[in-house]
């Protein structure tokens, strides 16, 4: 199978303000002094390697702050990796972002729009950036939004008056509008009601069934990951601690009959127990 994404030993660190008096993390990582005070290094991604094949849906699970969004940003050419190689469609994200960009799109947790403008105006704007005419955008987005159970009358109302779920559906329409070969979904269903969530999940399933679009999906919903993803990766403190099919992961932690939540705790929950032990020793 041809690789759509190749990540090899990818690391990304950020500098975060820290208070040396109080910071219990100090001494664990590098620190530096700067104008704003002392800064501590945070490893958002730490030596992450994996590959994703064409048409595959890869789920990424992990606790808050484990690096999921950072990984999505690196793949979407918005953030340069510090170390390692990231290739999308065989192209290095650092060297050929312009060749990658027309073929990908992203949905983030926050539906980011010009809130004063209507859904349609926002969609026409992004459509144009991808070379779509107004008519093309209107037809395609209407079809997608209808599929997502978004009423067409709402297309012309300012987005600021819409609920989070409605905005998120418009964000999903924006992403699908350009018919991306790679779709990066960063918590697309977080904060949606069960009905809307199912609408989105069914839509993703239908897209998946065409076998043409590769999808990376981060989520905090274990059932969703199990339902939609071919394979599931678990990030813990920036490290990729597991990557397999949902059943494979369950087998690994010995909960064949259990659910993905047990797997999640087995891989991503360990850190907290470790820290508690550290405290007892100290």
């Amino acid at each position: 199978m041809e690789d759509v994404i190749l990540c090899k030993n990818v690391s990304k660190r950020f500098w975060e303000k820290s208070d040396p008096e109080r910071d219990d993390q100090i001494g664990k990582g590098r620190t530096k002094r700067s104008i704003g005070g002392r800064k501590r290094e945070v490893a958002a991604l730490d030596d992450v390697s994996f590959r994703v094949g064409k048409g595959e849906v890869l789920g990424i699970l992990g606790a808050n702050g484990s690096g999921k969004s950072t990984l999505i940003r690196v793949i979407s050419t918005l953030l340069y990796p510090d170390e390692g190689l990231v290739e999308v469609f065989g192209l290095d994200v650092r060297k050929h972002p312009h060749a990658i960009r027309p073929r990908i799109s992203r949905v983030s947790v926050e539906a980011s729009f010009f809130k004063k403008l209507s859904a349609l105006e926002n969609l026409v704007f992004s459509g144009r950036l991808y070379g779509l005419s107004r008519t093309e955008t209107v037809t395609k987005s209407a079809a997608i939004l209808r599929r997502l159970g978004f009423s067409e009358q709402k297309m012309r109302a300012p987005l600021e008056n819409m609920s989070r779920g409605q905005q998120q559906k418009v964000a999903i329409a924006r992403a699908f509008l350009t018919e991306p070969e790679l779709l990066l979904l960063d918590e697309p269903t977080t904060g949606l009601d069960p009905k809307s969530r199912r609408d989105v999940q069914e839509f993703v399933e239908e897209v998946k069934a065409t076998g043409q679009t590769t999808i990376i999906l981060t989520t905090h919903d274990m059932a969703e990951a199990e339902r939609l993803c071919d394979r599931v990766a678990i990030l813990d403190g920036g490290r990729l601690v597991a990557l397999d099919t949902a059943d494979g992961l369950k087998r690994k932690v010995g909960v064949e009959a259990g659910n993905l939540e047990d797997v999640f705790f087995a891989f991503a929950g360990r850190k907290w127990e470790d820290e508690e032990e550290d405290e007892h020793e100290a």
Binding site: P102, G131, A143, I144, L145, R147, E179, F203, E206, T210
Partner: peptide, 14 residues
């Protein structure tokens, strides 16, 4: 896209 709004084949870059 057909009326279901599902892209059939990802289009080549323009």
């Amino acid at each position: 896209l057909d009326e279901t709004g599902i892209p059939h084949i990802a289009s080549p870059p323009r």
